[in-house]
Simulated assay, not measured.
Amino acid sequence: MRCPFCGEADSQVKDSRPTEDGSAIRRRRFCPACHQRFTTIERVQLRELTVVKADQRRVAFDRDKLARSVRIALRKRPVDDEQIERIVSGIVRQLEASGETDVKSHDIGELVMETLKTVDTVAYVRFASVYRDFREGKDFEAFLGHMGELPKPAKTGE
């Protein structure tokens, strides 16, 4: 693994341990050239996914982009980083397990919304407002009209 600080090609693994949910391995590394330490995360990748955009462009699936979107929706909500990581890993596993290598961006968005709906309704509305491109208050009003149909998420800390 190349050192992110000096670019040295060889680094040494000092410690390895699985993440809480067991979906990845966290490795603590040391660069013998510049003596810096850094962490890498290793995950199983079942297949290379390609995202097919609405305009039919094809781009490589970016797990980090998915994680950023979920984090933004959940910003300042009572959901910790570990739970966010489990949410993202679950979505990626569902995409990989579908058996398809080409995944429509629309399907990814719907899967994220479906997941957020059960985790945090505020995050669900936040994500939907961007994903569905709400432009006016009436867009929110129409969307929120369906909110009474949602299950209430489990309260934390009780």
Score class of each variant (00 low, 15 high):
M1I: 12
R2W: 11
R2H: 13
C3M: 05
F5M: 09
G7K: 08
G7P: 04
G7V: 07
E8I: 04
K14A: 13
K14D: 10
D15T: 10
S16N: 09
R17N: 07
P18D: 14
P18V: 13
P18E: 15
T19K: 06
T19Q: 06
E20I: 12
D21N: 13
D21A: 09
D21Q: 11
S23K: 15
A24W: 01
A24T: 03
I25A: 09
R26L: 11
R28Q: 14
R29S: 02
F30E: 02
F30W: 07
F30K: 01
F30D: 02
C31F: 04
P32N: 11
A33F: 12
C34W: 08
C34I: 06
H35P: 03
H35L: 13
H35R: 15
Q36T: 12
Q36R: 15
Q36V: 08
F38Y: 15
T39I: 09
T40C: 03
T40F: 01
T40N: 01
I41P: 02
E42R: 10
R43M: 06
R43G: 05
Q45C: 10
L46Y: 08
R47G: 05
R47P: 03
T50Y: 06
V51I: 09
V52Y: 00
A54G: 06
D55M: 05
R57W: 06
V59P: 02
V59D: 09
A60D: 10
A60W: 08
A60G: 12
D62Y: 04
R63S: 07
D64S: 13
D64G: 11
K65H: 11
L66N: 03
A67Q: 12
A67H: 08
S69L: 07
V70C: 03
R71G: 04
L74V: 02
L74I: 02
K76W: 07
K76T: 10
V79H: 01
D80L: 06
D81L: 15
Q83W: 11
E85K: 08
E85P: 02
R86T: 05
I87Q: 01
I87Y: 02
S89T: 14
S89M: 11
G90M: 03
I91F: 01
R93E: 13
R93W: 09
Q94S: 13
L95E: 00
E96C: 08
A97S: 15
S98T: 10
S98D: 13
G99A: 08
G99Y: 09
G99S: 10
T101A: 14
T101V: 12
V103G: 05
V103S: 07
K104R: 14
H106A: 14
H106G: 07
D107S: 11
D107I: 01
E110Y: 04
E110Q: 15
V112P: 01
E114M: 12
T115S: 12
L116F: 08
K117F: 06
T118G: 13
V119L: 05
T121H: 14
T121F: 04
A123Q: 00
Y124N: 01
V125F: 02
F127L: 01
A128S: 04
S129T: 03
V130D: 07
Y131D: 01
E136R: 13
E141R: 14
A142W: 10
A142Q: 15
F143A: 05
F143E: 03
G148F: 07
E149K: 11
E149M: 06
E149R: 09
P151Y: 04
K152S: 10
P153D: 03
G157M: 05
E158W: 07
E158N: 09
